[in-house]
Amino acid sequence: MSDSVSVAKSDGPGDGGRPEAIRAVPVRHPGRWAGAVVVLVLAAMFVHFLLTNDALDWPEQRKYLFSPAVMDGLWGTVWLTLAAMVGGITIGVVLALMRMSANPLMSGAAWLYLWFFRGTPLYTQLLIWGSIGALLPTVSLGIPFGPEVHTWETQKLINAALAAALGLILNEAAYMAEIVRAGILSVDPGQQEAASALGMSRMQTMRRIVLPQAMRVIVPPTGNETISMLKNTSLVAAVPYAELTWTAQTIYADTYKVIPMLIMACLWYLLLSSLLMVGQFYLERYFGRGTSQSERGRSRLRALGAIRGGGGGQ
């Protein structure tokens, strides 16, 4: 023991002071340089392509970018995305709680729902919603298998907008149910025990303790779902209902300028999905409070800010 102490002392800062800082020749990375050159050349070629390819027809794009027709289509895309996610999350939470229910009829019903809506293509489901009148000519309110109080014609009750929204909502609910269930299951059972031991009711425990922690797991995939949904709204052309892609199609049906209109639609989609990504970042940070994850998130934002600011800021 006394030996090691004396060794430590002789090496300590008290004797020789701080040793000289290491100045070594860094390892060279020629591969990185070669890779960078390739990427730069490819990027230059791409920019050249964007600027010189007449098929892109930027003036044509600018002409329609803010036209009333495109604005209408854009609005269709935005409200369908919002409605599908709000409706999908709401029904999804109910389905998730049903799946975790002790009642086998409840969990069985939820399972059957998921089986159908996840097992068939969204496009096909939307085609069915487009022809819902053929499947269900009338909708009635009354006692099941008994007298009917009032009857509507489905074709009038469910217009194209409602059919499109319902198609997206019911499909999204199936996916959200699984995301919510995974989130709830991710919370340590000790949390529920602690809440119970304090005398909190099951509802209070779910709302105040379990769900806020489940959100940390639920938010990132829900962000992905929202971005997917933004693009999946283009499938409601199957109903048919006019949104952004459909609008672009109707414009080039007249002008025959196919590529400019599709690229213009892409630009709008990119702008919207970028906005969603920013929103997702803040949501994740909010629900990550109290964990070290949130610290990492904050530094990621700083990195993001540095990139956006051109890297030289501050």
Partner: peptide, 26 residues
């Protein structure tokens, strides 16, 4: 009922081996 059980638990405090603090609260 659940409510009545909760009422009983209010007079009993419990401290767990793994603390089980609520991590999203100060």
């Amino acid at each position: 009922r659940d409510r009545e059980v909760s009422a009983q638990r209010r007079e009993i405090g419990m401290v767990f081996q793994r603390f089980n603090l609520f991590p999203h609260m100060t």
